[in-house]
Design a protein around this nucleic acid. Sequence first.
DNA 1: CCATAAGTTGGCAATATAGCCAAAACCTCT
DNA 2: AGAGGTTTTGGCTATATTGCCAACTTATGG
Lengths: 112, 112
Amino acid sequence: MGERRKLDGETKARMEARATVMKALAHPSRLFIVDELSRGERCVCELTEMIGADVSTVSKHLALLKKAGVVLDERRGQQVFYRLRVPCILNFFGCVEVVLEEVDRSKLEAVS
Amino acid sequence: MGERRKLDGETKARMEARATVMKALAHPSRLFIVDELSRGERCVCELTEMIGADVSTVSKHLALLKKAGVVLDERRGQQVFYRLRVPCILNFFGCVEVVLEEVDRSKLEAVS
DNA sequence: CCATAAGTTGGCAATATAGCCAAAACCTCT
DNA sequence: AGAGGTTTTGGCTATATTGCCAACTTATGG
């Protein structure tokens, strides 16, 4: 006994898989997209106008989210609509907000 | 009415704050650290041995997690112990696993 | 078929991350 | 103070990410 856990191949592979999902969510525009899609499906043109970046940029963000399994796309006519694939993603942000509050709180304490 | 939501300054700032936290979690080694810390506090040397990277590398990962508000550190003698600051972080991974299962499932469907 | 609109893809330049080594900073013990 | 163990920081290179433009694809409507 006393064998210490290691970041072996299997564990590493699992962490890399998780990291792929987290990376997909680790960008302001993509977080905005997820937040917006939580209210319902949106086409690329709508998201593009809201974000105010080039269409190609938004398209690449969406492709990344799709590849990570966070969103689904569906073409209808000229437009492509995206929607959240996994609703539980939203639970993330509750905790993220808790973290942010902690950070704020400790900054205030540092002053006092 | 009909005013479309925009990624304005305030929203952008909030998304950037969230992205900082997500970025901190968007790396295999850091995810491993969080997973390991969920079992209890660990010193830098323990984590370093488990991960198998240079101590300086692990130390920088920990500094990043700390800056993002995910972990706390405490020096005791020569060693510095780290622990999770916000337990709800762990809820993340349940959902991440759901996403990963979705991705796997759609790959299987693509074959059939 | 041609024009137009919506999205995607390729390519490039700017920026950000990651990881190692070396050096400094901290602690403990003698 | 000096030795040795633990952690952080600085600096550097290699790699990855981002965002724009331009070119291409796909669908609609005349």
